[in-house]
Amino acid sequence: MINYFKTIYQVSKALLQGMAVTGRWLFQPAITVQYPDEKLTPPERFRGTLVFDKETCTACNLCVKACPTACISLEPYVDPATQKRIAKVNWYQIDFGKCNYCRLCEEACPTKPIKSVRHSHDYEWSMKERSEMFVKWKRDPSPVIADTPKDTGTKAA
């Protein structure tokens, strides 16, 4: 009988103590962020969507070899007049359905000072179909076909 009341006492005490912890936090400013009205700034090293610079790329294939899921493909540009490969791409394609956002391609890329393929700070990006996940950049003279993710320019140059 005594034990019975003892248990009731102990449990209600623990309950009140727990409520006290909750109560203390009740009057402190909220730590949640009301997305999408408020947004956090991603840190400097944030690995967001990949952006590609079709003019500086030298079509060296190092990023293709570095990628663990083989999601990059490219075609070097062949000068129609001389039939020679030059250090430019014809097109460059990333399959974002496979991408791990791992930065291995950016680290492998030899272009300086800005890497041709690099992570932006962009993370808001959605696709409705799998075919939209293939993002293709085409270098001039042919016009750009696929829509590219916008580079918000937050990444330091």
Binding site: P43, R45, C102
Partner: peptide
């Protein structure tokens, strides 16, 4: 972790 590696769970 995000600051140091760029990702929240798959750090690499």
């Amino acid at each position: 972790f995000e600051e140091v590696s760029g990702a929240r769970m798959t750090y690499n």
